[in-house]
């Protein structure tokens, strides 16, 4: 997608993808034929630039056609640069500015509570995104309102736009920060499917307040030259790199 578009965010799409696979394959309740069904679970991709990862999942699960993936970043295409609920079936939140998805998720969680619905609200944040102060306004509010139907993943790939997170704004003890705000916290390897599935079950076991999984991930996971390389936060692979990457992912080219 990013190669075709000549722009986009491959690194964060690959760091989040294993969690998205597990979530959409095993846990999230939805009907791709009725993407706006009121009582569906919600998935809010707050790090909305990592849209190629989400579009791939939406195509895999029948919300959009594989052909639609070619419309990523193309004028009139349904796959906008950042995930957008107006354009893409299955997208619950129009993202693009960091630090917004958790608050939106809180609104969805309040609505579910008012509806006396059992639906669950999942939110994915980036770790660089945690530098936005508004995330912590939301973190405080979710605990205050005891939103047990709100589940969060932090995709901790340790790289942001310009450089490594540690170079831009050190985050120190991320789990301790969430704990201090009153959240239930669990750390996992965000590429170990067993740990991800255990993490999902753990999230479901908590209903008295919000819970967060800090998923340690690798930016650009699965492609040698992208892994842990800040250059691929927001840049597509070249023609040659594309072929190498596809081969490394096991795609016949």
């Amino acid at each position: 997608m990013t190669h075709r578009a000549g722009a986009g965010h491959p690194g964060g799409s690959l760091s989040e993808i294993d969690i998205l696979v597990a979530l959409y394959s095993t846990r999230l309740r939805y009907d791709p034929k009725q993407p706006n069904l009121a009582d569906r679970d919600r998935f809010i991709l707050s790090k909305g630039h990592a849209s190629p990862g989400m579009y791939a999942i939406l195509a895999e699960h029948g919300f959009i056609a594989r052909k639609d993936l070619e419309s990523y970043r193309v004028l009139g295409g349904i796959c906008q640069g950042h995930v957008d609920s107006k354009w893409t079936p299955g997208v619950d939140f129009s993202a693009g500015s960091l630090g917004m998805g958790l608050s939106f998720g809180i609104g969805c969680a309040h609505a579910a509570r008012l509806d006396e619905s059992k639906r669950t609200i999942f939110v994915m944040l980036g770790d660089g995104e945690l530098q936005e102060g508004s995330v912590w306004e939301a973190a405080m509010a979710a605990v205050h309102h005891e939103l047990g139907n709100l589940k969060v993943f932090v995709d901790r790939n340790r790289i942001q736009n310009d450089d490594f997170v540690d170079a831009q704004m050190r985050m120190f003890d991320v789990p301790a920060k969430w704990k201090a705000f009153g959240w239930e916290v669990k750390e996992i390897d965000g590429h170990d499917m067993e740990e991800i599935l255990e993490g999902l079950a753990w999230l479901d076991s908590i209903d008295e307040g919000p819970a967060v999984i800090i998923a340690n991930t690798v930016k650009g996971k699965g492609i040698s030259y992208m892994e842990n390389n800040p250059a691929f936060h927001g840049a597509p692979p070249s023609d040659e790199q594309l072929l190498i990457g596809l081969r490394e992912l096991g795609v016949e080219v």
Partner: peptide
């Protein structure tokens, strides 16, 4: 927390409130 408030409102509106 006004930034949070506006988006909590957005989430509620997207859910039919």
């Amino acid at each position: 927390g006004e930034q949070n408030m506006m988006l909590v409102a957005a989430g509620l509106a997207s859910s039919g409130y």
